[in-house]
Amino acid sequence: MNLDELQSLVDMVQNSQLREITLKQGDRRLTIRRDPLQGTAAAFGDVEGLMDGGAPVAGDLMAVASPPDTVSYHDVTAPYVGIFCHLRPMVGMGSRITNGQTLCTIQSMDIHNEVVVDVDGQVIDIHVDDNQPVEFGQILYSIEVDSSTDV
C-alpha cells in the first residue's frame, strides 16, 4: 500500500457511515477508526509494515492518529497449548465482554480449559478458527478496552 491509497482509505472512512475498517495483509493489520467525538479517522496497527514508502510516511501517519488516551487495546493470548474451541453460542466479532468472562476453551489432554478475559470491552478481532491448534502465547482475540477500565 502507498500513501495515496492509505489517504483514500482514511477519506472513505471519514465520509462514510463506517465506524472503522480493518485491513489484513499477511500477519500485519491496519485499523482505521473514526473518533466518535470528533468524527476524524485514525490509523492504528502495524502501519510501517503495510506501507511501501517506509518510515517517513509512517511518521506522518502517526501524527494523524487521534488522541490515544481514549482508546486502548488488549490482546487475549493462549495460556495453554491445545485446540481452540468457541463456546456455544460463540463470543463473536463485536461482542461486549466483561472482566472475568470466559471467551473460549482450549482443549488439552481431553480437558477443556477456559480462557478468561481480564478487561471490559468489545471484541474487534478473532485471530483463530474453531478447532484450530494453538500454541502458548498465540493471539486469540483483540479487545477494544472500555475507556473506564484500568488495564
Binding site: 495453554y80 497449548v81 491445545g82 485446540i83 488439552s108 489432554m109 480437558i111 491448534p133 500454541e135 502458548f136 502465547g137 498465540q138
Partner: peptide, 23 residues
C-alpha cells in the same frame, strides 16, 4: 511454544508438551 521462560511453566509443563505432540 509451550510456555513462559521458567522451566516449570514450559519444559516441565507436561500438559502443554503432550498437547503439542497431539496437535
Amino acid at each position: 511454544c509451550i510456555g513462559s521462560p521458567a522451566p516449570k511453566d514450559s519444559y516441565l509443563h507436561m500438559p502443554n508438551i503432550i498437547s503439542a505432540a497431539r496437535i
